[in-house]
């Protein structure tokens, strides 16, 4: 298998996940509305998503993307480790590259840990019906808002959730910037623009996802 294919899978699945995060954060913004409006809107939105066939298909692509992103990142890491069996006694890599770019796998591990816990708390309860049963709201929709709100009123969960948005931001910054290069985009000014967009995107995602639980906590 060529070197390009593995990195190409990581880059394209990564870009798809970047798009998904925009949709996810937009939905999270519903939580900022006053409680009664927020509950109704959030629950009807999630019901619409669950019942839409197209969204179901996109959801499967999403699961596959996460799995492929992780599996191929592992394959790349294994090859990279084999290529560098002896480390330097002194290596000032911080003088020629960013810490993030040198530690994407390490940072990615924390994001994976977060995804597993996040899925166990939401996805497993709502979609698989595991754990405590989820009630319904006044309109008869599954009360996903209640699940979210109760978790976001647990300070340990809120802190854990928000803290792990730091590695997310770092990972997104380097990932977004590099994915285009991996996929063969080499327009000089275009790449400079993407580098700037990556900073803004990573900041919006990490601050956005990180601050909403706190706002809900103090609401």
């Amino acid at each position: 298998m060529d070197l390009f294919f593995r990195k190409g899978v990581i880059a394209s699945t990564g870009l798809f996940l970047c798009l998904f995060l925009i949709v996810h954060l937009s939905a999270n913004c519903i939580l900022l509305l006053p409680e009664d409006i927020s509950r109704e809107l959030y629950n009807s939105y999630s019901t619409t998503l669950r019942e839409n066939l197209l969204i179901k298909l996109v959801a499967y692509i999403l699961y596959l993307s996460i799995i492929l992103h992780v599996v191929y990142a592992l394959l790349v890491t294994i090859r990279n480790r084999k290529s560098t069996p002896i480390k330097y006694a002194v290596n000032h890599s911080n003088e020629n590259s960013s810490w993030t770019s040198q530690n994407m796998g390490f940072i990615g591990f924390f994001i994976l840990l977060f995804i597993v816990i996040h899925l166990a708390n939401f996805w497993a309860r709502i979609k698989l019906g595991m754990g405590e049963e989820v009630g319904t709201d006044a309109l008869g929709n599954l009360d996903v808002y209640e699940v979210t709100s109760s978790l976001f009123h647990n300070i340990y969960y809120v802190s854990f959730y928000s803290l792990l948005m730091i590695p997310l931001g770092l990972h997104l910054h380097h990932g977004l910037k590099s994915a285009f290069k991996t996929l063969g985009f080499y327009h000089k000014k275009g790449l400079q623009a993407i580098a700037k967009i990556a900073v803004v995107y990573a900041l919006i995602m990490s601050i956005g996802f990180g601050i909403i639980p706190f706002i809900v906590y103090f609401k």
Binding site: L3, R6, K7, V76, R79, N80, K82, S83, T84, S93, E95, N96, S97, S98, S101, Q102, M104, H174, K177, S178, F180, K181, T182, G184, F185, Y186, K188, L191
Partner: peptide
């Protein structure tokens, strides 16, 4: 036995000729 490029950018900093990493793209 070379590894994958992960665009750390270290190469273009150390390259004596300053060859841009955009060449990899």
């Amino acid at each position: 036995d070379f590894g994958h490029c992960t665009f750390t950018g270290a190469c273009e900093v150390e390259c004596p000729e300053g060859i841009s990493i955009n060449n990899i793209a």
